[in-house]
Structures are given as structure tokens and as C-alpha cells.
């Protein structure tokens, strides 16, 4: 099958280009990450990130035939119709909207900065008990669908609002994490967290486009989390 990969090495290339490779899959429905390993055997200069190869570390977020996802848990048959059969090429590009360091490797700095801005850690100024802080199963259930985020950046880099204002709009991933702590019964920095989000950009640039929801490889729903934060801000304003 044909694979077309975005190539750019700042040391040698003046501009990026797409490079074609021929890979023998023996008709198997391999994961896209397996295809990258086969390409790497042919051409060791092609760079990409990978680690767990099972969809939990978030290293190999990339754009596959126009859609963001994790290469390690995306089989060829799910990329686009015709790719597995070799009727259409597999087209791999770096995540959109972030500076490219080399080939499929993007500079995630802006993405991580926005994550850090939401103070993504539990805050509780009451003295800790000798055992765990008690939390009922119902309270704990409120952070399901939030804590599972793997910081792969598939969501934020598919979000037009984030493309437009990556420095001021926090983006779906950071906001999901913001709500993860707002929703945690053990955290008591609610007021401080909300006041930091109460400006025209940080949260309110979300226009409910929902690209984040459609690409999240973990099936999470940042738009819903953002909606919950909006409601909290609204209630607080009254």
C-alpha cells in the first residue's frame, strides 16, 4: 500500500513536503503505528513519537487522512474507506495548529502551557486526615469521563477556537482538566479556579463546534465539561 508522510527537517529542508512510501502489509489490518514502524525500517530519518503502543500514553497523536487520532489504536480499516484495500493512500501529517519540530513531531509547548494555567492539581487547605479523604462512590463518579485524559492534544489541535487563540483560549484539554478538579469533592479551590476562567477568552471562546468530542481517542466529552463550567460561572454571577 501507499503511505504519504509529511516530512520536514529544519536542518536540511527549506519547506515541508509529502514523501511517498510503499509498504507491504500482507493485507493485514495493521495499526497506523505498525505502518510507521515499517516505514522507519526503510527510512530511519523519519521521526515520530511513540511509547505505550496501546492508547494510554498519548504520544502518537497525529492527523490521519484528515482526522486527528492516536496511530497505535487506529487500524487501517478505520482511517478511511479504501485505505486498507490499498485503493487510497494513507496520509499522515502532524497535529494541526502547532509548530512542527520535525516530520510528525510537533512542539507541544503551547498545549502544555494552557494545561498548567488551570492549576491541574488538587487543592485543599484543610489538614489531611491520617487516612484517605473520604469520598462517596457518587462523588467519585463525577470525575469519571474527566480524569482519563491522556494529554494527546488530538482535541485542542482540532479546535478552530484554539487555532485562532492558542495563547488565550485554554482549549478543550485544559478545560476538561479544569473541570476534573472543580468536580472533585476533595478540592476546595472552586472560587479561585472559577475566577481565573471568568474572562472573554479562557473559556468563553468555546463555540460548541465539538470537534474535540468527535476526535477524542478516549471517548471523552470536553464540550460537556466546558458547559458545566459555564453553568458554575453563571450561578456564581447571580
Amino acid at each position: 500500500m501507499k503511505v504519504s508522510i509529511y516530512r520536514y527537517n529544519p536542518e536540511t529542508d527549506r519547506e515541508p513536503s509529502m514523501k511517498e512510501y510503499e509498504v507491504d502489509t500482507q493485507g493485514k489490518d495493521l495499526m497506523v503505528l505498525d505502518i510507521l514502524a515499517l516505514v522507519k525500517e526503510q527510512d530511519q530519518s523519519m521521526a515520530y513519537r511513540r511509547s505505550c503502543r496501546e492508547g494510554v500514553c498519548g504520544s502518537d497523536g497525529m492527523n490521519m487522512n484528515g482526522k486527528n487520532g492516536l496511530a497505535c489504536i487506529t487500524p487501517l480499516s478505520q482511517v478511511a474507506p479504501g485505505v486498507l484495500e490499498g485503493k487510497k493512500p494513507l496520509i499522515l501529517r502532524p497535529l494541526p495548529g502547532l509548530p512542527v519540530i520535525r516530520d510528525l513531531v510537533v512542539d507541544m509547548g503551547m498545549f502544555y502551557n494552557q494545561y498548567e494555567k488551570v492549576q491541574p492539581y488538587l487543592q485543599n487547605n484543610t489538614p489531611a486526615p491520617a487516612i484517605e479523604r473520604l469520598q462517596s462512590p457518587e462523588e467519585r463518579a463525577k470525575i469519571d469521563g474527566l480524569y482519563e485524559c491522556i494529554l494527546c492534544a488530538c482535541c485542542s489541535t482540532s479546535c478552530p477556537s484554539f487555532w485562532w487563540n492558542p495563547d488565550k483560549f485554554l482549549g478543550p484539554a485544559a478545560l476538561l482538566q479544569s473541570y476534573r478538579f472543580l468536580a472533585d469533592s476533595r478540592d476546595n479551590a472552586t472560587e479561585e479556579r472559577l475566577s481565573k476562567l471568568d474572562d472573554p477568552f479562557s473559556l468563553f471562546r468555546c463555540h460548541g463546534i465539538m470537534n474535540c468530542v468527535s476526535v477524542c481517542p478516549k471517548g471523552l466529552n470536553p464540550t460537556r465539561a466546558i458547559g458545566h463550567i459555564r453553568s458554575m460561572l453563571l450561578e456564581r454571577g447571580i
Binding site: Y121, L122, N124, A128, I131, E132, R133, L134, Q135, S136, P137, E139, R140, I143, Y147, F181, D184, R186, D187
Partner: peptide, 14 residues
């Protein structure tokens, strides 16, 4: 737990 690790819980909250 105090750092925020989201452990699953029992009915007693433990």
C-alpha cells in the same frame, strides 16, 4: 489520595 489520585471508592467512602 491527598495529592488527588482518583481512587475508586467503597460505600463507606474509602
Amino acid at each position: 489520595d491527598h495529592m488527588g489520585l482518583p481512587f475508586s471508592r467503597t460505600e463507606e467512602g474509602r
